[in-house]
């Protein structure tokens, strides 16, 4: 008797689980498809904000960046991707000495997008943009100068 009940219960349970699976895939059949048809949908392509495409240095309205040339990003980088050139200037009014950024050189070709530089930056001066079409014919064009103007901090 016990065995018979197991047989029928097992059968019904099996059918139930199969129907559960079919419900899931049946719903999936009618949902919107996730495929991105990339080159065609270039204009409407939306990437996640957290996508790391290329290191950028955002500027405010006056075109000033927040970099203080502290070099923490350069030290954090495991690949020596970032090179910072700075100079020390004396503020004319207060007479204090101050370090300013001259050149922020970033080599996209050796970057591994680990985001350690962005995490190390104390002033949120750099961040990753979602731009990802980085293919070029010459490796040297991958070396980029991120600061457009000299830092005015």
């Amino acid at each position: 008797m016990e065995k018979k009940r197991n047989y029928i219960n097992g059968l019904l349970h099996g059918i139930g689980t199969l129907l559960t699976g079919m419900k899931v895939t049946g719903r999936e059949f009618f949902t919107k498809k996730v495929t991105e048809q990339y080159p065609e949908n270039r204009k409407t392509l939306v990437l996640s904000d957290r996508f790391r495409g290329m290191l950028t240095m955002p500027v405010d309205k006056e075109g000033r960046n927040k970099c203080i040339a502290c070099g923490l990003c350069q030290m954090a980088c495991p690949n020596d991707t970032i090179h910072i050139e700075s100079e020390t200037i004396t503020d004319e009014t207060s007479g204090k000495k101050k370090k300013v950024l001259v050149k922020y050189q970033y080599d996209l070709g050796s970057c591994m997008f680990c985001q350690l530089c962005v995490n190390a930056c104390p002033h949120d001066a750099i961040r990753f943009s979602t731009e990802f079409e980085n293919a070029v014919f010459d490796r040297n064009t991958l070396v980029k100068i991120l600061n457009k103007t000299q830092s005015n901090h």
Partner: peptide
């Protein structure tokens, strides 16, 4: 096409 639809893809396009 049907396989793709069940896997939330578009299939050959």
């Amino acid at each position: 096409k049907v396989c793709a639809a069940f896997q939330c893809r578009l299939g050959p396009m």
